[in-house]
Amino acid sequence: MKTVLRIVAGLALLLLVVVVGGYLWASRATASTLARTIDTHAVDFPIPWPDVGPGGELGDSAAASVDPRQAALERGAHLVRARYPCADCHGENLGGGVMMDAMPVAQAFGPNLTLGEGGVTRDYGPSDWDRAVRHGVGTDGRPLAMPAVEFRSMSDQELADIVTYIRSLPPVDNTVMPFRTGPIGKMLVATGAFGFSADALPHFDDHAAMPPEAGPTVEFGAHLAATCAGCHHTHYAGGSFPGEPGWPPSSNLTPAGAIGGWSLEEFRRVMREGVRPDGTEVAVPMTYILGLGQAMSDMELEAIYLFLQSLPATETPD
């Protein structure tokens, strides 16, 4: 009996050593991952964006019938409320929100973007905005929890319009807790199972100055649908993705998925009401996107639909 107890005690001690050793290794690896610096290019663009002529050329602000800043504000408001899910992470007032609160995995809170106390963008210039939004890299060069892979295709004009709009918002005094990883999260980061956008993006390629011409076209739809890549991947065939425990795999958006048999009106209903043609409802986190769908125009939703229908039929990866 004593021999059995000694064996059990020895195995328990060995397990404890393995667990503690693994945790210490994961903690050091995670700290190293979060502390490293990533080089990016430095860009510059005007904020607010100048007025634009019908052919895309810069116009004459003095002769414009619409104040360029007011036009940028209106475009920026639409971008934030209809095309880019800023509020999902940064809160409705953009003064800070919850990205993930799932310990022992991780806690990630969208920082305060306003000009109030605790606002992280108060001293941002164009290049700082570019690094954070389109590269997932902070002003100190360290990787952010920002899902920049969804915003890589954002043009200079769109980013300038969004900045103009954010700077016009009422200041919110709120200091947001920094990104934290729990024991499981440390292991995921250490093993590479939880990645950062900064590691998946090019950092020295040029960005488009302006978005494609708006219209019910595949090209414009591809631009709008780029924000879907964070969950549905760049192949749009869906599958598993980093998220809170319990979130289901993302759906296949190519014609190989159920969407291949949807009509335009059925697609619009899914995007605005969250109800599929078979009567089932979409699940979290797709429910967070319904506000964007409701704010989009019929033309914008048609463009996305045309783009998704144009994709090659791709089976969801295992």
Rank of each mutant, 00 (worst) to 15 (best):
R83A: 11
C86F: 08
G91V: 06
N93T: 09
G96V: 09
M99G: 13
D101T: 13
A102T: 09
V105G: 09
V105F: 12
Q107H: 15
Q107C: 14
F109R: 08
P111V: 02
T114G: 12
T114L: 06
L115Q: 14
E117S: 15
G119L: 12
V120C: 08
T121E: 03
T121A: 08
R122N: 12
Y124H: 05
G125Y: 07
G125W: 02
P126R: 01
R131Y: 01
R131S: 03
G136F: 00
V137Q: 01
V137H: 02
D140L: 11
G141H: 06
R142M: 12
P143R: 02
P143Q: 03
L144Y: 07
M146Y: 02
A148M: 03
A148C: 06
V149E: 11
R152P: 03
D156S: 07
E158A: 08
E158T: 10
L159S: 01
A160N: 02
A160W: 01
D161F: 11
T164L: 09
Y165L: 11
L169V: 10
L169E: 07
V172R: 03
D173P: 13
N174Q: 11
R180S: 14
T181W: 11
T181R: 12
G182A: 05
G185T: 07
K186Y: 08
M187F: 14
M187P: 15
A190L: 11
A190R: 12
T191P: 15
T191L: 10
G192Q: 11
G192I: 06
G192T: 10
A193T: 14
A193R: 15
A193S: 13
A193W: 13
F194W: 14
S197F: 04
S197Y: 01
D199Q: 10
H203N: 01
F204W: 05
F204H: 12
D205L: 07
D205Y: 01
A208G: 05
A209K: 09
P211N: 12
E213S: 15
E213G: 15
G215E: 07
G215T: 10
